[in-house]
Design a protein around this nucleic acid. Structure first.
Lengths: 109, 109
DNA sequence: TTATAATATACGAATGATCTAATATTTGAG
DNA sequence: CTCAAATATTAGATCATTCGTATATTATAA
């Protein structure tokens, strides 16, 4: 049955379906960052960031190394960016469609 | 900054992050289906299906036509399938691991 | 007109996700 | 050892999503 596939895929999408987690992944596009740096880049609370990092780690999108008392996080699966970028295309197509609708309405008057 | 993009993308992912909605989209791969057919294919409750159809409609992934008292739903944005398939391909290894976990849980009940 | 089938909607209950605040852990400095 | 900085974890409160049940709507048939 395909139900387990749908469950898995749903959990995959869910893990990406949060603005802060997307911001974190974007911030890690150009190499590793400490938690503090991620806090500054995304303007999220310390505990909140840490929790979202855990979620992304659990899904193997990111990993980290410890150096002293700093944790350097980095992307673990570059293909997630292909995925995110394709999501961007979807977004843009829908935006264009929406614009066309608006334009059509304006013309009709 | 990019916060609104992240918000939008998150809502996009969220709209796909449900097993039943994924099942519906899959069922519509080979052409239009009535709500009753979708109910049978996905074994979801009538009201539940209808609610999920509304969510997918709001995101312009699907649309429908009315014929008599039947509603024929169909895909509105083929690119969503490229997106769904990419997710599948890229994470198949993880999927297998996860599927084993789920199946093990199902068997246990 | 009444009845029935197909679908949609409304709304509260249940469930799940996220945030906040407090506390714990680890490391290095002094 | 004690302290401070960085990060993680926990518990409860809050918020969002989903589901179940009931009701509404619409089209058709009788």
């Amino acid at each position: 049955m395909k139900q387990s596939i749908h469950l898995y895929k749903a959990s995959l999408f869910k893990s990406l379906a949060h603005p802060l987690r997307l911001a974190i992944l974007d911030a890690l596009r150009d190499g590793e960052k400490t938690v503090t740096q991620l806090q500054e880049l995304t303007s999220g609370e310390q505990a909140t960031i840490s929790q979202h990092l855990t979620i992304l780690r659990n899904h193997h999108f990111i990993t980290f190394r410890k150096e002293g008392n700093l944790a350097y996080y980095r992307n673990e699966d570059p293909e997630v960016y292909i995925f995110l970028d394709l999501g961007r295309q979807l977004y843009e197509r829908q935006l264009n469609r929406y614009r066309e609708e608006i334009d059509a309405q304006v013309v009709r008057r």
